[in-house]
Design a protein around this nucleic acid. Structure first.
Length: 506
RNA sequence: GCGGCCGUAGUCUAGUUUGGUUAGGACGCCGGCCUGCCACGCCGGAGAACCCGGGUUCGAAUCCCGGCGGCCGCACCA
């Protein structure tokens, strides 16, 4: 399974071990939805807690919010989602293929002025547009919108329509003024949020990769537009070497990234602002913290055609999945002042603030992480076969279960001692206890769900009150007293990165 | 959404081409033995009417239709 980790085998592993279940599985499942199982729920919590610590709590320039999922409908008009999320589809009556009406017209060099069903229909008729595949007649344009619609109140009328949020970002923008005026933040500063978003994808696919309901972890970082190159923390990331693939390279037909430090990438103008480069660096630093193999990450710039309506420049952090190649796990956009400006227009409330004796609408750098995609990357990275045994080699920081307690043999006195240790450890760590089958088998079972440490109660324990601590990846063992075991485990988990390779990881 | 392939116990799977005895196995699970430091030792047991619905037939897991779900390709991914 490790040599050729496939999406299928990973999906089935997650189901078998209780990381994820297809939502509504007993009824046949619903496309695009997965439920977190016991291990998945713990893994998720470790990741979001660490993200929140790293991007919010430890920083002096960041605060968090937690916005509502169903949001004032105006929000999505202002953000451009009502318009941009609305596309028109035409279907060939002969071969049944679907096309986006506007793309079809643009491909034929026809200028699309407005996106209404009537105007698109008229253009198609006027220019005699046919199916590019088979030349068949095209249907009338039918609208589809990627936002989930729901209704406020009991009546299902056009006026009561609203949407489940398709991104968390807008909740930050619509709260920006209140946060600025009530919480006393000074530029530059950021607002972070973790939460569910909903997109009615036409074709959800690839397990956790494209879901209809998923979780974002986002920062909107506000900067004086005259100070986009004045990041006081830049030194922390300047020398970080990254794999970078620019729009220019891609437009020149290359798909080979180059290795540059962030400072070089910024100074050469590949990354247009220093703040943008800084947030790319912080993102990669966090991925490293949670144990992702950063050698498998690259920073790819969006080419013009894929740039979103709001973006000045966007870089995706892509992870190289063994079964599907380079895929986005985080997007870092320079959104300029687009969002605040639009909300100013639509609300009539000024979004300008004062800094350095000038008034302006701040510009925004947005690191936007897809939680489930990160989990998929972490699991793909961690699942390996070490000397013939399956091991989920997750970093101790995110491992869903931190410690297993195992009696060497299932004699009553061993069990009694092991259980009392387990009950104590469970107050401090996610822990698991098992007495079934041979000790070797139990080690393999806990290795496979990524438990970094195993405490074994053996004959010596009963004599001198010591246990062994075994390391998952190397099977190295150390004998430690039961008194102070909690402190010792804490020390090992906290210092995971600095422990000797020979005990910690292969 | 379109096209191709697919859907059998908790999991993986045999059987589907050539409809027909109690749908077979492995792992897991439960009980017992073994008291073993790195899965894969022994005995016993429970568990599927074959994704859902309809049809053809004396008879369907097996053929046909629709739905749901999965994979791949196309389109889509703001």
């Amino acid at each position: 399974m490790s040599e050729a980790l496939t999406l299928d085998s990973l999906t089935s592993f997650c189901l078998r071990k209780g990381f994820f279940y297809p939502s509504g599985r007993i009824y046949g499942g619903v496309r695009g939805f997965y439920d977190y199982g016991p291990l998945g729920a713990e893994l998720r919590k470790e990741i979001i807690d660490d993200w929140w610590y790293f991007f919010v709590r430890r920083r002096e320039d960041m605060v968090g919010i937690h916005g509502s999922i169903i949001t004032h409908p105006k929000t999505w008009e202002a953000s451009g989602h009502v318009e941009s999320f609305y596309d028109y589809l035409v279907t060939c009556s002969k071969c049944g293929k679907d096309y986006r009406a506007d793309h079809l017209l643009e491909d034929l060099g026809i200028n699309v002025v407005s996106l209404s069903a009537e105007s698109l229909s008229a253009l198609i008729k006027e220019k005699g547009v046919k199916c590019p595949e088979c030349g068949g007649e095209l249907s009338e344009p039918a609208p589809f919108n990627l936002m989930f619609v729901t209704y406020l109140g009991p009546k299902r009328t056009r006026a009561s329509e609203t949407y489940l949020r398709p991104e968390t970002a807008q909740l930050i923008f619509i709260n920006f003024r209140d946060i600025y005026y009530t919480y006393g933040m000074k530029l530059p500063f950021g607002i972070a949020q973790i939460g569910k978003v909903f997109r009615n994808e036409i074709s959800p696919r690839s397990f956790l990769f494209r879901l209809r309901e998923f979780e974002q972890m986002e920062v909107e970082y506000f900067v004086n537009p005259n100070k986009m190159d004045e990041c006081p923390y830049f030194d922390e990331v300047a020398s970080l070497r990254v794999n970078i693939l620019t729009a220019e390279q891609q437009e020149g037909g290359t798909n080979e990234h180059v290795v540059l430090t962030l400072e070089e990438a910024w100074k050469r103008g590949l990354i247009k602002s220093q703040w943008h480069a800084y947030w790319i660096g912080e993102s990669i630093a966090w991925f490293k913290r949670i144990g992702l193999n950063v050698g498998r990450l690259r920073v790819r710039e969006h080419v013009k055609s894929e740039l979103a309506h709001y973006a000045l420049q966007t870089f995706d952090i892509e992870y190289y999945f063994p079964f599907m190649g380079w895929k986005e796990i985080e997007g870092i956009s320079n959104r300029g002042d687009y969002d605040l400006r639009r909300h100013q227009e639509f609300s009539g409330k000024s979004m300008e603030i004062e800094d350095d004796r000038s008034k302006f609408i701040p510009h925004v750098i947005e690191p936007s992480f897809g939680l489930e995609r990160i989990i998929l990357a972490l699991l793909s990275d961690a699942y390996r076969v070490i000397e013939g045994r399956p091991v989920l080699s997750l970093h101790a920081r995110v491992a869903p279960i931190k410690v297993a307690v195992l009696p060497l043999v299932s004699k009553p006195e061993f069990i009694k001692k092991a259980r009392s240790i387990y009950v104590e450890l469970k107050k401090h760590f996610t822990a698991i206890y098992s007495e079934k089958g041979t000790i070797g088998r139990r080690y393999v079972e806990v290795d496979e769900i990524g438990v970094p440490l195993a405490v074994t109660v053996d004959g010596e324990t009963l004599e001198n009150n010591t246990v062994t601590i075994r390391f998952r990846d190397t099977r190295a063992q150390a004998r430690v007293p039961v008194d102070g075991l909690v402190e010792e485990i804490n020390r090992l988990l906290k210092n995971w990165d600095s422990l000797a390779e020979s005990v910690r990881a292969k």
